[in-house]
Design a protein around this nucleic acid. Sequence first.
DNA 1: CGTGTACTTTACCAACTGGTTGATTAACCA
DNA 2: TGGTTAATCAACCAGTTGGTAAAGTACACG
Lengths: 130, 130
Amino acid sequence: MPTSTLPRSSDDRLDETFHALASSTRRAILARLATGDANVNELAEPFEMTLPAISKHLKVLERAGLITRGRRAQYRPCALDPEPLAAVADWTERYRTIWENRFDRLDDYLAQLPEPSPPTTPSETGSTDD
Amino acid sequence: MPTSTLPRSSDDRLDETFHALASSTRRAILARLATGDANVNELAEPFEMTLPAISKHLKVLERAGLITRGRRAQYRPCALDPEPLAAVADWTERYRTIWENRFDRLDDYLAQLPEPSPPTTPSETGSTDD
DNA sequence: CGTGTACTTTACCAACTGGTTGATTAACCA
DNA sequence: TGGTTAATCAACCAGTTGGTAAAGTACACG
């Protein structure tokens, strides 16, 4: 395996980041690492899962650049690297404005309504919806 | 298939949202929908993929709540619903602070350095970086 | 009616995931 | 040297994913 370090597009990297995050196990590992570095056994402890399974999850997180791994004696300490999350935040941000504009348009619509009929006159309101 | 609409945990829904976003095809569909609603054929047009494949992607996006679908004659118009992205933004935000604290700690470290050697003395600055 | 258009469903496939067990590597300790 | 601990590798398995082709459904139109 030549460990193909080909120049990945930002699309590919976003694919990889989102995929790595699409697992509550992996997100829990990241949450644990957010409190400080940890070895593989420490990371595996909360899960009802064998060590090789955790090892695989860590490899996914590492390939996505979300963690880095060192070597201290026979331990492989893992550290969080939230850098790829910046791209996630950027991507998400572009949709937040769209989301907010919906309410803006609704606000505009409500603002130009003829009369804010008081809630004491429940009749007359068009009940033939749909 | 009883369409199991079981009460999903927020973890499960985040899994589903991240999974739906972990495909550049699906993100491209969302980007297209960000410019306005569209039918399935319109959404499929930019891709070298058969219609059933797009249909499957749309189903993934729909299950994740990222799009809603209507019925107008034989058309099934799709509309973007960025609401689930709020949870993504929230999740990501918790790690942004960690990311920034790194630099804060670096700032603290730099701030407490003995002497901020002025830039007018270009010698003396350690040029033996790797 | 029948025919075309828009889309979904079904059945099938190869590839990938996510887990397992058992063997293996690597470093420390005695 | 040999044993223990930490972690990965290899092989395997069931279930899922992402695509296809072909058939089916739903609606409009002449």
